[in-house]
Amino acid sequence: MDALKSAGRALIRSPSLAKQSWGGGGRHRKLPENWTDTRETLLEGMLFSLKYLGMTLVEQPKGEELSAAAIKRIVATAKASGKKLQKVTLKVSPRGIILTDNLTNQLIENVSIYRISYCTADKMHDKVFAYIAQSQHNQSLECHAFLCTKRKMAQAVTLTVAQAFKVAFEFWQVSKEEKEKRDKASQEGGDVLGARQDCTPPLKSLVATGNLLDLEETAKAPLSTVSANTTNMDEVPRPQALSGSSVVWELDDGLDEAFSRLAQSRTNPQVLDTGLTAQDMHYAQCLSPVDWDKPDSSGTEQDDLFSF
Score class of each variant (00 low, 15 high):
3 A>W: 04
4 L>D: 02
5 K>M: 08
6 S>N: 10
7 A>W: 13
8 G>P: 08
10 A>T: 10
10 A>Y: 14
11 L>P: 14
11 L>Q: 10
11 L>S: 15
11 L>H: 04
12 I>Q: 07
15 P>G: 02
15 P>L: 00
16 S>N: 08
18 A>D: 05
19 K>T: 15
19 K>S: 14
20 Q>M: 08
21 S>Q: 08
24 G>I: 07
25 G>T: 03
25 G>D: 14
26 G>M: 03
27 R>A: 15
28 H>R: 05
29 R>Y: 15
30 K>N: 15
30 K>Y: 10
31 L>D: 03
33 E>N: 09
34 N>M: 10
34 N>D: 14
35 W>Q: 08
37 D>M: 12
39 R>C: 13
41 T>W: 10
41 T>C: 13
41 T>V: 12
44 E>D: 12
45 G>L: 12
47 L>Q: 02
49 S>C: 12
49 S>T: 11
49 S>R: 11
49 S>M: 15
49 S>P: 06
50 L>F: 14
51 K>R: 12
53 L>M: 11
53 L>T: 11
55 M>I: 13
57 L>P: 13
57 L>F: 10
57 L>M: 10
60 Q>A: 05
60 Q>P: 15
60 Q>C: 07
61 P>L: 10
62 K>D: 05
64 E>M: 04
65 E>W: 15
65 E>P: 05
67 S>L: 10
68 A>M: 06
73 R>T: 10
74 I>K: 15
74 I>N: 09
75 V>A: 06
75 V>S: 14
77 T>P: 12
77 T>H: 08
77 T>R: 12
80 A>H: 05
81 S>Y: 01
82 G>R: 15
82 G>F: 08
83 K>S: 12
87 K>A: 07
88 V>H: 03
88 V>N: 01
89 T>D: 14
93 S>H: 07
93 S>K: 14
93 S>T: 12
95 R>S: 01
101 D>T: 06
106 Q>R: 10
106 Q>C: 01
109 E>K: 04
109 E>S: 02
110 N>S: 14
115 R>F: 02
116 I>D: 07
118 Y>V: 03
119 C>Q: 12
122 D>T: 11
126 D>T: 06
126 D>S: 02
126 D>Y: 03
128 V>Q: 10
130 A>Y: 11
133 A>P: 05
135 S>P: 08
136 Q>D: 07
137 H>E: 12
139 Q>C: 15
139 Q>K: 12
140 S>V: 15
141 L>I: 09
143 C>F: 15
143 C>P: 15
145 A>V: 11
146 F>K: 03
147 L>H: 15
150 K>N: 15
153 M>E: 03
153 M>N: 07
157 V>R: 00
161 V>C: 07
161 V>G: 01
161 V>F: 09
163 Q>P: 00
166 K>M: 14
166 K>W: 02
167 V>R: 09
167 V>A: 03
167 V>S: 03
168 A>Y: 01
168 A>F: 02
169 F>W: 06
169 F>P: 01
170 E>P: 02
170 E>D: 08
170 E>N: 05
171 F>T: 00
171 F>A: 01
180 E>S: 14
180 E>A: 14
181 K>R: 10
183 D>H: 06
183 D>C: 13
183 D>E: 12
185 A>K: 11
189 G>H: 05
189 G>W: 04
189 G>F: 06
190 G>A: 13
192 V>Y: 01
193 L>S: 05
195 A>G: 04
197 Q>M: 08
198 D>V: 04
198 D>L: 12
199 C>L: 04
200 T>P: 10
201 P>I: 02
202 P>E: 05
203 L>K: 03
203 L>V: 00
204 K>L: 06
206 L>H: 05
207 V>Q: 00
210 G>M: 02
211 N>Q: 08
212 L>G: 11
213 L>Y: 07
213 L>I: 05
220 K>Y: 02
221 A>R: 00
223 L>G: 15
224 S>Y: 11
225 T>V: 08
228 A>Y: 06
229 N>I: 05
231 T>H: 01
234 D>Y: 11
236 V>G: 12
242 L>S: 04
243 S>T: 07
245 S>P: 00
245 S>M: 15
246 S>Q: 07
246 S>R: 08
247 V>H: 13
247 V>I: 00
249 W>V: 03
250 E>C: 03
251 L>H: 11
253 D>W: 05
253 D>S: 13
253 D>C: 03
255 L>R: 15
259 F>R: 02
260 S>N: 10
260 S>V: 03
262 L>C: 04
263 A>V: 10
265 S>E: 03
266 R>T: 02
268 N>S: 03
269 P>S: 01
271 V>A: 05
273 D>L: 02
275 G>K: 02
276 L>S: 05
276 L>K: 07
276 L>W: 01
277 T>W: 00
278 A>P: 03
279 Q>E: 03
280 D>N: 14
280 D>G: 05
282 H>I: 01
285 Q>R: 04
287 L>A: 02
287 L>Y: 00
288 S>L: 15
290 V>K: 01
290 V>A: 10
290 V>E: 06
291 D>R: 14
292 W>Q: 09
294 K>S: 10
298 S>A: 10
299 G>Q: 04
299 G>S: 08
303 D>A: 04
303 D>Y: 12
305 L>E: 09
306 F>E: 01
